[in-house]
Design a protein around this nucleic acid. Structure first.
Length: 604
DNA sequence: CCACCAGAGCTC
DNA sequence: AGCTCTGGTGGC
């Protein structure tokens, strides 16, 4: 009889200790009594001493007699590291790493592997591959996949993963799994196949980072700087960062790739920017010299320049498509303060909140969060919040008016994006050119149609965001709008703004090294990522917020409280581990009634 | 008489 | 969070 620590899926920030009669083994499954029921967990370590603390008695658990531990050693370490680093607790991390259908499979699993294991000793190394053109990255990926014994290739989006997968030569595809994006039976089977080592490669979206290959010799992360590697729901993880850690634990080679690096990778490796947009392909236009769009019923100050209209016409004359980009939606568009001019931003993702007239509410155009319209301006407490700024729909009549009648003009519609039929239809429709109006999501069109011209109607828009990443987001979107799907360089990008050709915009033609040098200097000064980890804490009540903040202060932290949204505040730390110990008490199970705070860790 | 539910209570 | 136990309601 001995005591073992078990990682139980759930809100616990600590593992739970149980007594085992039979042989327990780290990584193995256990059926443990918790509260009034039972759950399956993963044995972490043991034998251990009785844990400190009172008010509980140690109960007896049963090890599941799987032929082998469910999680290999490295995965076990990766899960607990994830729980600590992203401040979500090991139980939440475990849920991401092993689907519940696997964890609580009612039968013992037979032996997973007849796979021989690693034949070459591993060495951790970092390789940077920053190329603007997709094929200049993907072809080397394939080369690496062929050379590596086992490989994990991650993309920020499933769609990208699946286009890459389609590109693999069949000999390679036969021993590779395209990791399923949804759960269910498919994931169950993919998980078992990976665990058995019956494939040598996994290609997938962020969810594939925990694919349980018994060992790894190479990890490849494409579009490493993409925000899509951050999960959308709890637990808030960054799959890019986990992939990096995994490569380190596995002693695998880590390839970080993309059109431009994230701040962290740039700081770490100073990769060189080999190519920027040619000077003649980027036009900066002073929005103040534009003319206001005259759309009946819209009182707005959205300005459209002559350059926008003439370049659009040129593009149509070349039989190509023009993309007008404005990161807000809706006829009435965003809700802005009459006094300070700021727009209401999403409390969750800082996207622009658009006014839904019918519902009398605000809805985020990026993540869909819905909120009532605030009474005062959240920035200056100004009273007037008006829905006067025109959005995309307001531009539609202008675009329609300048295009010949037989040329399609359309609003980018998310539902038309997916499905083969839809894509083929869209491709056909735009075969001889057109104008498409959309938000940043419309950049996906670059993969479908020949975009000869991409215009940012309000390039300052993103920069008005309060997020510290605003400039990076603006720059990476503009950068993407030039390079995505542009294998030649015959696309023109136009940036309408109030400060044309200054600040982050210069990076378009001078390259991202220039961008990051300026940006990093500023972030270092302010103690922001990548120099510090930024922990965003969303409390469940005002009392809880007070209490967490004072505990942090006692431990020498300086929490930052911007005041809006009311329950969210921030703390910068050199590593998450010290914040971890301050926050842990708030996750003690006895506090569940008060609700647990929600935490996001920003690393770059 | 019992199916169905919302709420309470508990968690090494 | 996830589970079960509780007690009330309402259908027939």
């Amino acid at each position: 009889m001995s005591l073992w620590d078990v990682n139980v899926p759930g809100p616990w920030w600590n593992s739970l200790t149980y007594e085992f009669r039979e042989n327990a083994e780290p990584g193995g499954r256990a059926l443990v009594p918790v509260g009034k029921g039972f759950r399956y967990g993963i044995i972490e370590r043991g034998p251990v001493d009785r844990p400190a603390g009172e008010g509980f008695s140690i109960r007896q658990a049963r090890a599941v007699s799987d032929a082998e531990p469910l999680l290999p050693q490295n995965m076990l370490q990766l899960v607990s590291w994830t729980g600590k680093t992203f401040l979500c607790g090991p139980g939440e991390a475990l849920k991401s790493a092993a689907p519940s259908s696997i964890l609580s499979f009612p039968e013992p699993f037979p032996s997973f592997s007849d796979n021989p294991g690693r034949t070459m000793p591993g060495i951790y190394e970092e390789v940077f591959l920053y190329e603007c053109r997709t094929r200049n990255r993907w072809i080397p990926f394939i080369d690496r996949m062929e050379k590596a014994e086992t490989v994990l290739v991650l993309f920020p989006e499933q769609e990208m993963a699946s286009s890459f997968f389609d590109l693999l030569p069949s000999s390679l595809r036969d021993r590779t799994i395209l990791w399923p994006s949804a759960g269910g039976k498919k994931l169950h089977n993919a998980w078992l196949a990976a665990r058995a080592g019956s494939v040598s490669g996994i290609v997938g979206g962020p969810g594939a980072v925990f694919a349980p290959l018994p060992f790894l010799s190479a990890v490849i992360v494409d579009e490493e700087s993409s925000g899509a590697f951050r999960s959308y729901n709890k637990p808030f993880l960054n799959a890019r960062t986990i992939a990096g850690r995994r490569a380190l634990l596995e002693k695998a080679s880590l390839t970080l790739a993309g059109r431009l690096p994230s701040s962290r990778v740039y700081l770490r490796g100073r990769p060189a920017c080999t190519e920027a947009a040619p000077r003649h392909s980027v036009r900066y236009v002073d929005i103040r010299k534009g003319f206001a769009s005259e759309t009946p019923g819209v009182e707005g100050n959205l300005r459209l320049s002559d350059a926008l209209l003439s370049e659009t016409k040129n593009t149509l004359a070349r039989g190509k498509t023009a993309l007008w980009l404005l990161d807000r939606k809706g006829y009435a568009g965003e809700v802005a303060c009459e006094d300070c001019g700021n727009s209401v931003r999403c409390p969750r993702c800082s996207g622009i909140m658009a006014w839904e007239e019918k519902k009398g509410r605000l809805r985020c155009s990026s993540c869909g969060t819905s909120r009532p319209i605030p009474e005062f301006c959240p920035f200056c407490r100004g009273i007037l919040l008006t829905g006067k700024r025109p959005g995309l729909e307001a531009l539609f009549p202008v675009a329609r008016a300048i295009a010949p009648e037989d040329i399609p003009v359309m609003l980018w519609n998310e539902s038309r994006r997916t499905g083969k039929k839809n894509r083929l239809g869209l491709k056909k429709e735009l075969a001889t050119g057109g104008i498409v109006l959309g938000t940043r999501a419309a950049l996906a069109l670059c993969d479908l149609a020949e975009i000869g011209f991409a215009a940012w109607i309000d390039a300052d828009g993103e920069t008005r965001s309060v997020s510290y990443q605003a400039k990076f987001n603006a720059f990476s979107m503009a950068w993407e709008s030039f390079w995505r799907g542009n294998e030649g360089t015959d696309r023109m990008v136009l940036l309408q703004s109030r400060r044309p050709g200054t600040g982050w915009q210069r990076g378009m033609v001078s390259g991202w090294e220039k961008f990051w040098k300026d940006e990093l200097a500023e972030r270092k000064e302010l103690g922001l990522p990548p120099y510090f980890f930024l922990v965003e804490i969303s409390a469940r009540s005002a009392e809880q917020k007070e209490s967490i903040m004072s505990k942090l202060e006692e431990s020498g932290f300086l929490p930052m409280d911007p005041g809006t949204p009311p329950l969210i505040f921030w703390v910068a730390a050199e590593s998450p581990s010290r914040v971890h110990s301050v926050l842990a008490p708030f996750f003690s199970i006895g506090n569940s009634r008060k609700g647990f705070p929600e935490i996001k860790v920003w690393i770059d």
